[in-house]
């Protein structure tokens, strides 16, 4: 009984942590980017203020939209938060039990994307269609890279469960040639998946360069709050994944208060560092033309395949 209670507390704590920290990370990136542009930028808490304000507002929905448009924010939020809840953050235990593995995470994000893309097409605006079309192109190319990279980890662990993968990183070491290759591949893909420069620009509403923003252009008020929150959770979950698989320092292996608190501190620090790296990449690269993006993703796919070959031939 006590164990069950303990697990429940861990699960709830995990979800609350993800919900609370994710807007902060997005804002941190904004802040660092502003610094590079010699601006002061918004305060670190601006993300919370925005959500709080959006939740208060009425929603305007297009006269052409169907129920898909109304349901999408909820589907996207649920699928993304569930995906985040599967990835261990501060303990190696699966946060909400054996709900799913890494394949489930990828396909839950796929479910969220499917609905976002449909919502983009739903309002009869050509911006939405443009965003959906581009997003589906980028993501369908990114998917094999993520799966291949994660399979390299799964081979070592003998399992696609994230707890097992992280445990095996802790025991068998994370400084291996194949791990370094897929770390690079995953970083590229995470940038593509979360819609950041050089693939997409989250700060723009310039018509011809939008991808993700174009799909959600018609959202307002509380619907927009859910969509925005979901995309910051998505960023957070992908960074958590990278942080815990490749740099599993500080993650709690036992359930004691000390380990847990240091685990929470560790994951927040690691994600902060990774978010800063993304901000630096965003500030120091130019956005690619859309049809150069496949080359970038193709490069990361080559890295992932190389890692897979190394791994299955037992050379690293």
């Amino acid at each position: 009984m006590e164990a069950l209670l303990q697990r429940a507390i861990i699960g709830i704590g995990h979800v609350v942590l993800v919900l609370l920290v994710s807007p902060l990370m997005v804002n941190l990136i904004k802040k660092i980017k502003a610094h590079f542009q010699c601006r002061r930028g918004p305060g670190l808490l601006q993300g919370y203020y925005d959500l709080w304000k959006l939740l208060k507002k009425d929603a305007v929905i297009s006269e052409h939209a169907s129920w898909i448009f109304r349901a999408t924010p909820y589907v996207v939020f649920s699928a993304t938060l569930l995906a985040a809840a599967i990835i261990p953050a501060f303990t190696v235990l699966p946060p909400i039990g054996r709900v799913g593995d890494v394949i489930a995470v990828i396909y839950l994000l796929g479910l969220a994307r499917f609905f976002t893309a449909l919502a983009g097409l739903d309002t009869a605006s050509s911006f939405g269609g443009m965003g959906s079309s581009r997003e589906m192109m980028i993501s369908s190319l990114a998917e094999p890279v993520i799966i291949t990279a994660l399979f390299v980890l799964a081979i070592t662990a003998g399992s696609t469960n994230l707890s097992e993968i992280i445990s095996s990183s802790l025991t068998s070491g994370y400084m291996q040639p194949s791990y370094l290759l897929i770390l690079l591949a995953l970083l590229i893909v995470v940038i593509a998946e979360t819609g950041r420069v050089p693939v997409d620009n989250p700060a723009t509403h310039l018509e011809l360069t939008m991808v993700h923003e174009a799909m959600v252009l018609e959202y307002t008020g509380r619907d927009l709050a859910l969509i925005e929150w979901a995309s910051s959770i998505k960023l957070m979950l992908l960074l958590t994944l990278i942080a815990n698989v490749f740099l599993p320092w500080g993650i709690a292996r036992e359930i004691t208060w000390v380990f847990m608190l240091s685990g929470i501190a560790a994951i927040v620090i690691k994600v902060t560092v990774l978010a800063s790296i993304i901000a630096v990449v965003e500030s120091s690269t130019a956005k690619l033309r859309l049809f150069r993006v496949p080359e970038l993703i193709g490069g990361s796919f080559a890295l992932a395949m190389l890692a897979l070959i190394l791994r299955i031939t037992g050379k690293g």
Binding site: G110, S139, E143, P144
Partner: peptide, 16 residues
């Protein structure tokens, strides 16, 4: 594995 993942991604694009 990459072939199946790419198939899944493209199928999703197609049905969107």
């Amino acid at each position: 594995a990459p072939a199946l993942a790419l198939t899944g991604g493209l199928a999703a694009a197609c049905f969107v």
